[in-house]
Design a protein around this nucleic acid. Structure first.
Lengths: 191, 191, 191, 191
DNA sequence: TATGAATGAGAATTCATTCAT
DNA sequence: AATGAATGAATTCTCATTCAT
């Protein structure tokens, strides 16, 4: 009978948090600012998130979830490994370029003490489909055998670094450059 | 007031800062804790560093300086490009593995609003010898032509990601794995 | 707006308040908790009580009323002073032992700034029959002459202290001990 | 070499706290007000007391300590039981009348959830000399045998109630009334 | 220089009360 | 009447920085 709990508020809070973290870094993130940017009273934040840490952790998870599922979008087990690899890699790149703040938020916090162990764990779990796919590639001798962590680092590291550089230097990648990046990624890991 | 001479204290402060940032993230870095860990009074910190931001900026530059010069150690213009590339790459990897906290401090802050523009600029300048070297490789058609930012991202990204993973998961790289990483790096950028 | 009729709800609120005050002290008394413990929404509280202070004041008066009238129960002007004194004193003791939370609530708030002057006054008025009775005893030279405040303090003080001790130490009084307490009370004030 | 920690600040804080609790009850006690009343910055409070609860607990203990030792002042094992009893009782009464805020602070908090178990325990310990004395009186058959809690309640209850009444009604006790109170106390417990 | 007590602006969080449903 | 989400003023506590010694 009362005002129903407004679920769009969560999105507004996430959006505001992201925007503010991007603008002034995590350190400068003030709950009061988040509330204002999200168009609500401070206290309202605390209806949806128990405290600042929880907000950060849930935002992280939400972003990681969305990012991961969008990367896996269009995954078709019937396609060849190489085709799928290319598709996933480009998904990830375009996602990163289109929403660098989201990507960098994840990157920035992934190894930080803000995140609880549980959050890190849950975040890792989301990568399982990707890991399974890559594992398969190694078994089929399409890509080289190596510990999964190294493989992921090899593939994601350059993308992260690129969007960081792009962020601070306002560069724009041409299609040819993207293609070049992909080829580097592929050459580095393929037999 | 000129910078006091006591380099011992400065080192102690840097060391303490690094240790604390590693332990509880930058967010939890308190000047009082730095002072205690460095074995001095809070006030003393402010004799050596005007404020917290200056401390962070100077530590960043000091680390970047040291890291860069150690990476370039043994650089000999007479060596072949490939040999030098291998030497520099391994220098960088070993450096990163030996002192991950230092490396991650740099990485973590490099794109952060804690750093002033000037600091970022000075940090970039230190990379010039490396950049000149890589430029040369591109001109000699030994490595592929691409914007320098992409090249650096391609080479450094995987190393950063690897040490992050190594930090949180306590992995140790075998010599064969290191060699594998190098080969991926080389294959990705060489003609 | 006249007081709504639903006495059930008022009782539930009183009961919940009492329970919570006992558990975590007045300081920790939150309206939201009262509402939950009373099985209703926060807003509903405010239909029955204008605000927290009013709730406290009305609860106080209600308790004092009930306590006083139950103490006076069975008062019969035809009985001897001594018999009546004994009856009233035991009524009060048994009441206090049976419902210490209620008694302590009154005690605890009686001299507190939560209560308005009006409430205190109304509370005092309820004691008038008792005061008249004691006054009579002094006039008849059955009990010693002294200011009424001193007399009341002498009679009630030990009972309050006893139930406080009993509360925190979980003691149980034997009939002999109760009798002993009565004798002390009587000896202290009787000629 | 720095400003030495100023121990008189603790007294200033205690004094300010007491004054404010008396004025507006514990509920209205704001740390900012305490600081202002004590003539220092808010932060300074937290140098001397970790938080509000600790402040309350330590003040309680300090008051109980001082009150108890002053009550026992002049205790001489060579004196007769009755003389000592009278001396202690009057010490307690005069103390209570002279510093009712201090006494009521103790009374008010003694059974409250603000106090930790440890504090309550420590507070109880301070009464041991008094308890030993009274025990002795019971053994010598000078005062009646009963559980110590009842005896203490009987003796202290009337005093507490009296100062509460005195506080709110601004009464002043005459010497004859004090003597009357003592006699009631004595008659109630003596054989 | 060195110290560490003192400062006080600022941040997170709470909670009595309101109000849209 | 009843609900409970929303509000935002108020409060506790923190911590970078200053300054008396």
């Amino acid at each position: 009978m009362a005002r129903p709990k407004d679920e769009t508020k969560i999105d507004a809070i996430f959006e505001a948090t992201l925007k503010l973290v991007q603008k002034s870094g995590f350190n400068g993130l003030k709950m009061a600012d988040v509330a204002k940017a999200a168009g609500m009273a401070t206290g309202t934040l605390y209806i949806y998130f128990k405290n600042k840490d929880v907000l950060i952790n849930e935002l992280f998870l939400s972003l990681k979830q969305s990012k991961t599922s969008r990367m896996m979008a269009g995954y078709d087990a019937a396609d060849s490994f190489a085709d799928t690899f290319r598709k996933l890699w480009f998904n990830y790149l375009e996602l990163s370029l289109a929403e660098p703040e989201r990507m960098l938020f994840i990157e920035q916090f992934a190894h930080t003490s803000f995140l609880t162990k549980k959050t890190k764990q849950q975040g890792d779990q989301m990568l399982e489909p990707l890991i399974a796919f890559l594992e398969q590639g190694m078994q089929k001798k399409i890509i080289r055998k190596m510990p999964m962590d190294l493989l992921l680092s090899q593939l994601m590291g350059p993308i992260y670094e690129t969007i960081k550089a792009q962020q601070s230097k306002k560069l724009v990648l041409t299609p040819a450059q993207k293609q070049g990046m992909f080829e580097m990624a592929w050459r580095s890991v393929a037999f």
